[in-house]
Design a protein around this nucleic acid. Sequence first.
DNA 1: CTAGCATTCAAACGCCCGTTTGAACGCCAC
DNA 2: GTGGCGTTCAAACGGGCGTTTGAATGCTAG
Lengths: 214, 214
Amino acid sequence: MSDLALPTRERILSTAERMFAREGLDRVTLRRLTAEAGVNLAAVNYHFGSKDRLVHEVFSRRLDRLNEERLAALEALLARGRPTLRELLAAFVDPALDLALDPGGGQVFMRVLAHAYAERNEGLRDFLAQRYGHVLKRFVEAIGAVLPRLTRETLYWRLDFIAGALVYAMAEFGVMRRRPGRSAEEHRARASAQLVAFAIGGLAAPPPSPPHPE
Amino acid sequence: MSDLALPTRERILSTAERMFAREGLDRVTLRRLTAEAGVNLAAVNYHFGSKDRLVHEVFSRRLDRLNEERLAALEALLARGRPTLRELLAAFVDPALDLALDPGGGQVFMRVLAHAYAERNEGLRDFLAQRYGHVLKRFVEAIGAVLPRLTRETLYWRLDFIAGALVYAMAEFGVMRRRPGRSAEEHRARASAQLVAFAIGGLAAPPPSPPHPE
DNA sequence: CTAGCATTCAAACGCCCGTTTGAACGCCAC
DNA sequence: GTGGCGTTCAAACGGGCGTTTGAATGCTAG
């Protein structure tokens, strides 16, 4: 591959990302990973301590920057004052789409993400919630201010739905794979427009009637 | 559990369904399954031939009825004429909820589905697509007829978004995990209500302006 | 030149997996 | 009774897993 010259640690990371994207976290074994990376089996435990910590490293390598960008975009909007729903959503969605388009493996990483939540990896879930929960919280507060009739619970549900839709669509799991004739930039622009339009409709929808309060 | 008196084969099936739903296909081992079912380890291979064939059996047992009901509900709406978006979504979701609440062991079955899809179990995926694809197609047509101002492309994008949101929510990967005080039934009912309300808003949202038609 | 240290390596450890085996069991027809 | 048969059972098989180990290696500072 392209990383034959990279130091062992980096070689493991990029190979792990590629394989996780292709097969999911569970199915990738350290033996196959290290073989494909061209490093010794024990190198993973030497450099990362365990397979779990390698997984954490793969995620934080991409997500740290993504969430910083989201937060920066949000703070910029708030500093300016009176952000619209569309602007807030764009601040949430666009950094992710940028990452998905990043030729340095962002698209691959989105598939890793999609696999991860499909696999119900509790440890990873907790790790991510603890590490990036504050970003989601800030967005909930800001969007809640724009949509005062929604309860906090409904708001969290809907942002969760949007996050799911975002990862799913960006991983190109579903029907909406990029068409052969379209450039990646066109695809991203279209995905962003489609997702934001959809998300605005979903967010602004009337809340569900409370389930039979007795 | 309630199936102590059932014959071995049925005991395996219902235990498998319950455990698959709780943990996903990969994490359930035959040793734990047979222990929980109170049968011998070898019974699975005796009655089903292999773990894979057990999985197929679990699926086809429940899915035939589910998709028949969905299709029947849809056809009933179409025969009556002019179904609303909410009715169409309900026709898709309610049979699943009925099945989910069926005390005959199907209460957790829908989670099995979400898992199987997300785990990218290719064999199972193909099996499902080939066996029930026509049902999804009929729903796409019907929903498209209710939302005529949406292009086919926008409609597919949005159904993809909903699928992503659904898988995400069902995997309980996001923030909206079941709260300790709530029963599984309450959580499911709430998730469903939240998702349908959100999906209606998103589906009915004005389509995005076409991206710079040159 | 060499002592020290980070890194790489082959090999092994202990564990759990799905599956197979062959004996034991329970039941009904004859 | 007894033979046959569907079923259950404990035990073992072969293999893959993540991890650990201790020796070999290569680089760098003194």
